[in-house]
């Protein structure tokens, strides 16, 4: 079986049909993902270059993703980020996307795309 192709942020945004609140470098390679709504868990496990799927919407998620060096946050389940969350993502240059799909489906699609 062929090894999965590297997946860029741009490709994931297109394939998962994500809404863009704050864009991220579309050429950046996704180095794995986290699916969790517990901030301390993501702070401990999140790695540089990953994307984070969560239903949390408050500005602290941007701090966590930024400190972990992640590329982007995907807010699942049809939730919308708070205005301060968008402002902080813009300030820190953190990608912020939304989807009406569940975290489960988004994670499955990321995996299917080749994100490991």
């Amino acid at each position: 079986m062929e090894p999965p192709q590297p997946v860029t942020v741009g490709r994931a945004v297109e394939a998962l049909d994500l809404g863009t609140c704050v864009s991220a470098d579309p050429e950046a390679l996704i180095a794995g993902a986290q699916v969790s709504d517990l901030l301390s868990y993501v702070m401990a496990e999140g790695q540089r270059g990953q994307v984070w799927v969560t239903i949390q919407t408050h500005p602290n998620i941007v701090a966590v993703a930024g400190l972990a060096g992640m590329h982007a946050i995907i807010i699942a389940g049809g939730f919308e980020p708070e205005p301060e969350t968008i402002a902080r993502a813009e300030e820190e240059g953190m990608g912020l996307f939304t989807s009406a799909q569940t975290a489960y489906l988004l994670a499955g699609k990321l995996y299917e795309l080749g994100v490991r």
């Binding site: 500005p59 602290n60 701090a63 400190l67 820190e92």
Partner: peptide, 26 residues
């Protein structure tokens, strides 16, 4: 809580400017 993480983000910035290695910064 909505401001939480600002101090840590500032610390990360000064460490980067001081040339501290990435592993330690993380």
């Amino acid at each position: 809580y909505f401001l939480g993480g600002r101090a840590s983000t500032s610390v990360k910035q000064v460490l980067r400017e001081a040339g501290v290695d990435d592993a330690a910064i993380r």
